[in-house]
Amino acid sequence: MAESVRALPQEIQELIDVREWDLRTREGIKRFTELKAKSLPSVALDGELVYEALIPPQEELIAAICERYNKKNQKKKQEEGMS
């Protein structure tokens, strides 16, 4: 799974920070249960579990990242406009 994230195009890599958790460690298990994940591999975007037990096609993953990125940007712009 981490490989598929690392294989994302450079312009997408620049939008994201990637953190990989190892389920063999106490820290990894803690994060896995916090996310309420059930299967491996799992992908969370902005702390929300999005993919479980599957590696999404690259286009799908890019679309999900961009959607979240755009939403966050819109919200930020709205907040800036209000202030």
């Binding site: 389920l23 063999r24 896995f32 249960t33 309420k36 994940a37 059930k38 299967s39 491996l40």
Partner: peptide, 10 residues
């Protein structure tokens, strides 16, 4: 029991 799929993989 919800994590059994992950446990099975491990």
């Amino acid at each position: 029991k919800e994590v059994y799929p992950a446990l099975r993989t491990m």
